[in-house]
Amino acid sequence: MKLAIKTIINGAEIPYTRVLEWERRRALVVLRKLGVKPAGRDLAGMRQQLAERKQALGAAGMMRILRRELALSGPLATLTAALSCGRRRFSVTELVMSGGTAEQFVDWLNERARINDERSMLAGTPDHYLIRIGANGVQDVVETNGGSPLAARFFIDYQDLSSLRSPVDPAYPLQVAGVARSGGGRAIGGVRHQFRNEGTGFRARLLVEFPLLMLPQVVTGHQWHLASEFSNWIEAAFA
């Protein structure tokens, strides 16, 4: 099934070509970071290069490359969360699909996570380096958030909604939500992605909570990250 996907950021519809161009720019950055010379500017080719390079490096290899960034971003995230005193900024993107159902997509996403299908998870957007459920059921994530210059590592517990600040919208019966914590256990944010059937397809309201004092360009940049990763995951789910 080939779906048409409408992207809405800050109330305005964004042409899908702009989402693809954002992904193309990020693919160039990440390929170079991982030590790969882009074979060209074709996005499909860069996606394939990224998949092959990430698989070849494995999690341990990518962590070695990112070690300096992670050494900086971890303490910064903890400090920013502490100074924000639990207050949050929300990064929100909406997607409207022409077909499929919310149940089908949420089931697909949850199953990919459950079985640790890392190739599918990493293919969401170039800025994904690790998305893996640990033995404790908590998701270990390493990615570059939106407009941040640094990759970050955090842990999402989808059984814990205790410190989320975003409201549940009763118009969306399905959600994927959880608290994000630092390696030291401090709550630094979270996700509340909500879904509902609409018309002949479904709508996704994708939301990430950041500490209030997070740089605004990180929060706004993450709207494009969300548009890219969920568009790609939705296309994969209904391929």
Rank of each mutant, 00 (worst) to 15 (best):
K2S: 11
K2F: 11
I8D: 00
I9M: 05
N10A: 15
G11A: 11
G11H: 09
E13R: 13
I14F: 02
P15G: 10
Y16L: 15
V19L: 11
E21L: 12
W22N: 12
W22K: 12
A27D: 07
A27F: 01
V30N: 00
R32G: 06
K33V: 13
K33L: 14
L34R: 09
V36N: 04
K37G: 05
K37F: 08
K37I: 14
P38R: 07
D42R: 10
A44F: 11
A44T: 13
M46C: 10
R47D: 12
Q49Y: 09
L50D: 05
A51Y: 03
A51V: 04
A51K: 15
R53C: 14
R53S: 14
K54C: 03
Q55Y: 05
Q55A: 15
G58F: 02
G61H: 06
I65W: 02
L66A: 06
R67A: 13
R67E: 14
L70D: 12
S73D: 00
P75I: 12
P75Y: 14
A77D: 03
T78V: 13
S84E: 06
S84L: 01
F90I: 06
S91N: 11
S91Y: 07
S91V: 03
T93V: 08
L95S: 06
V96D: 01
M97Q: 02
S98Q: 01
G99V: 12
G99T: 01
T101D: 13
T101Q: 13
E103Y: 14
F105R: 09
F105M: 09
N110E: 13
R112D: 09
R114V: 00
I115H: 10
N116R: 08
E118Y: 03
E118M: 14
R119W: 12
L122I: 07
P126L: 05
P126M: 08
D127Q: 15
H128Y: 09
Y129K: 04
L130D: 04
I131S: 02
I131E: 07
I131K: 03
I133A: 02
G134Q: 08
G134H: 02
A135D: 15
V138N: 11
V138H: 04
D140S: 06
V141P: 00
V141D: 12
V142G: 08
N145L: 05
P149N: 03
P149T: 10
L150T: 05
L150M: 02
A151D: 10
A151Q: 04
A151R: 07
A152T: 09
A152Y: 11
F155H: 12
F155P: 04
D157L: 11
Y158I: 06
L161R: 15
S163Q: 15
R165I: 05
P167I: 14
V168I: 15
D169I: 04
A171N: 14
A177H: 13
A177Y: 14
V179E: 07
G183C: 08
G183I: 05
G185V: 02
R186D: 01
R186N: 00
R186Q: 14
I188F: 06
G190I: 09
Q194R: 07
E198C: 13
G199S: 10
G201S: 10
R203N: 01
R205F: 05
V208Y: 09
V208T: 15
F210D: 11
P211R: 10
M214P: 05
M214Q: 07
M214D: 08
T220Q: 02
G221E: 10
Q223Y: 09
H225Y: 07
S228K: 02
S228L: 03
E229R: 08
F230R: 10
S231D: 15
S231L: 07
S231P: 03
E235C: 00
E235P: 01
A236D: 12
A237W: 14
